[in-house]
Design a protein around this nucleic acid. Structure first.
Lengths: 208, 208
DNA sequence: CAGGATGTAGACCGAACATTCTACCTCCCT
DNA sequence: AGGGAGGTAGAATGTTCGGTCTACATCCTG
């Protein structure tokens, strides 16, 4: 029942478990779904779950790690799609709006998880923070062409708009949200390359 | 133990219950806190809780209704603070950043609730949608001076930025989030009054 | 004074929760 | 041939959940 690859073994039941957990946790939240539900839908027994994951928390952490990997893949693909940094930012933005407009979109898995785990010391909360820091750094890096101070502000601005779009994407018309987001991103890109067009607000912001 | 006012009676235990629920639900989430916890901290018995609220769900609804009222009050105060629509928008933005930088800030009570109640048919989810619709309409109204199409886009843009700021405000440096948000809002205000400065992106956005 | 609304105190309910356990089966690798 | 890892099946753990109930005390008002 296992598939062996060099250096590691992947259990079929484990994959089924993790995929089921991903689907249900994302769609319905974490605290509101019990172990029995996941075990039943993954067609495994409780004993099997606890053979692969130390606890429910461990399963949640694995779910978030998987989501993190998926997003890193999307961003890497966006970076590889064009040599132009501006177009790379646009590609990242497009991958976000694609997600928002996909069926079953339920917001950002990490923001949703943070809403359920408020304690900053909790491992799940920290997993959220780590993912977000990586994303902010990555986007800021994409923004950085010449002026570093402007890139920081532009990166934060982009992430804030993304957070808003992701949060609202499942509470309002996804198409309208996507349009609003993409126009906002265009504004950020333009303001960064021709800062005087924004009346100096963004430029002075970067220095504060 | 009750205070009578014309037309209605306010129970002390009920207020204590609702305030306690508000504090704990906001700080720690909804599914993760039980009735016993609220009952204990409010210094009432379970029987008293169920005398005033039909169920836990009812208590959550009352919590959100109270939060809704508080925010409406803030927005009304912002509207009354100046005759200039631009400054009214700035005042709303300031009330938001004040919240973000206040101790115990834990994000938007409504976004957090939506993360825990994903089913659109659920009364709690619908309470979130209703509040958000009111807020979007109100902000759009503030944006509307002459051009209606631009106001719609500006209102959506403002709310998206707010959502991002509220979501990230408890996951990142609140001061930096507040600055980023306020600069973004200035950009929206300026883009609305002098749309050609944004290269037409915002203007064309409004028409789509 | 009677009665209804409000409250306390605490027992009680069935269900769901996460987690552990024993017992047995079936592969694959050595 | 033997052993360990991965799996099933299902019982059992003790805790917590939301919610109900009885019994009794208080207080305001009609």
């Amino acid at each position: 029942m296992s598939r062996s690859t060099e250096g590691g073994t992947v259990s079929e039941a484990r994959t089924r478990l993790l995929n089921t957990a991903t689907r249900i946790f994302y769609a319905e939240g974490i605290h509101s779904v019990g172990i029995d539900r996941i075990v039943a839908e993954a067609k495994v027994t409780r004993a099997t779950l606890y053979r692969h994951f130390a606890s429910k928390e461990d399963l949640v952490l694995a779910y978030l790690a998987q989501a993190d990997q998926a997003i890193r893949g999307q961003v890497a693909a966006a970076q590889a799609s064009s040599p132009s940094p501006d177009d790379q930012v646009r590609a990242v933005a497009k991958s976000i709006t694609d997600g928002i407009q996909s069926t079953g979109f339920r917001g950002c898995a990490f923001l949703n998880a943070a809403a359920e785990y408020s304690d900053p010391a909790h491992p799940i909360h920290q997993a959220v923070l780590a993912h977000r820091q990586w994303f902010l750094d990555t986007v800021t890096g994409l923004m950085a062409q010449t002026d570093d101070g402007v890139a920081d502000a532009a990166g934060r601005h982009f992430v804030m708009l993304r957070d808003g779009a992701m949060a609202a994407g499942c509470l309002f018309d996804p198409k309208l949200i996507s349009d609003t987001f993409l126009h906002g991103v265009e504004g950020i890109i333009k303001a960064r390359t021709i800062p005087e067009l924004t009346g100096g607000a963004t430029a002075s912001a970067a220095k504060s």
